[in-house]
């Protein structure tokens, strides 16, 4: 009951925050100079054409009215039509979302697993050279300049060595081949995914390793570990069964808390690798003044981060019985 109340309260909070973001976003986009019609630099576009188009796109209405429509549409799940593509925004997002989810969640899960595993080892060997090198390696991975790294990886592995395709998500040659089966197509995606996945993995795994290492060191000082030692349990058992599961909790939290930060990296990675996801679409739509699409993608990202934070909190409490909901 307590849990349900807590989730309910948080959901209301999230709804309010979301609404504020929605409003701020609307104002930002409308107050900015220029509109999608201004961008058309074609001597054939007469001022009359422009006025007509603006009227047709509904951009001539008073801003208050536009805002009301905007909120009403959002509540009813109508995200409008993209100025750039002329397609419903929902369609575009639904088309791009799975790609982002695939790349992003895979990279987060893989890097969290590796980070936890290696962080555990590093903590266990604190002070030894393994620990030092792992820490330095993790720090380097974590601070390397991502887009630069991505381009170098493309050059090295996709061009020089030629192991992977250059960019994109699928190769046209495979997908238009009527004989290509499911396995071939699936493999094609995996093949394209390895480099962007590797880039994101490197960036994330470093920080997870560091968090796991610190948290493991703390855990090892806890009483119950001492008790376990006193009981004469094997060191390996203590490490893997007693310390590690508890120490991994902060990693879980940090996945949630640093999600906004990871999304920056995700958008950069998608942009450099031409991965047809939400992040790339957002960067692209922003520079195109495609308000409906940019707004919806940004709100989607905000909503995901907000909900992820809630999930992390609940999960954290669930995994760690010492925590109570306030």
């Amino acid at each position: 009951m307590e849990l349900r109340k807590y989730i309910f309260r948080r959901l209301i909070e999230i709804a309010i925050i979301f609404f504020v973001i929605l409003t701020v976003l609307f104002l930002l986009f409308r107050l900015a100079p220029g509109d999608p019609v201004t961008r058309m630099v074609d001597p054939n576009m007469t001022p009359e054409d422009a006025e007509h188009l603006i009227e047709q796109l509904g951009l001539d209405q008073p801003i208050g009215l536009q805002y009301l429509y905007y909120v009403k549409n959002f509540v009813t799940g109508n995200f409008g039509v993209s100025f750039h593509y002329g397609q419903p925004v929902a369609d575009i997002i639904l088309n791009r979302l799975p790609n982002t989810v695939l790349l992003f969640t895979t990279s987060i899960i893989l890097s969290a697993l590796f980070g936890i595993f290696l962080g555990k080892i590093a903590a266990w060997r604190k002070g030894e050279s393994t620990d030092t090198w792992m820490t330095i390696g993790a720090l380097i991975c974590h601070t390397v300049f991502l887009p630069w790294l991505a381009l170098i990886l493309i050059w090295l592995f996709a061009y020089k060595v030629g192991w992977f395709p250059l960019t994109g998500m699928i190769s046209a040659e495979v997908w238009i081949d009527p004989e290509a089966g499911f396995l071939e197509k699936a493999w094609d995606i995996v093949h394209h995914m390895i480099l962007p996945l590797g880039t994101l993995f490197m960036i994330h795994f470093g920080s997870y390793l560091l968090i796991m290492r610190s948290s493991m060191l703390d855990t090892l000082k806890e009483d119950y570990i001492l008790t376990a030692r006193a009981k004469g349990l094997e060191e390996k058992t203590i490490r893997n069964h007693h310390a590690a599961p508890n120490a991994a909790l902060p990693v879980v939290t940090s996945v949630g808390l640093s999600l906004a930060f990871s999304i920056n990296g995700g958008a950069l990675t998608e942009t450099v690798f031409t991965w047809p996801g939400i992040g790339r679409e957002l960067v692209f739509s922003v520079s195109n003044n495609d308000y409906p699409l940019a707004q919806a993608s940004f709100l989607l990202i905000a909503a995901v981060v907000l909900l992820a934070n809630l999930v992390v909190d609940v999960l954290y409490a669930y995994l760690d019985p010492r925590i109570r909901y306030e």
Partner: peptide
């Protein structure tokens, strides 16, 4: 005709060379 989308010129040039 297969038209492939590249986000950046650099990569498209690499694709051309490759």
């Amino acid at each position: 005709i297969v038209v492939k989308i590249f986000g950046t010129s650099d990569v498209a040039i690499l694709a051309l060379k490759k």
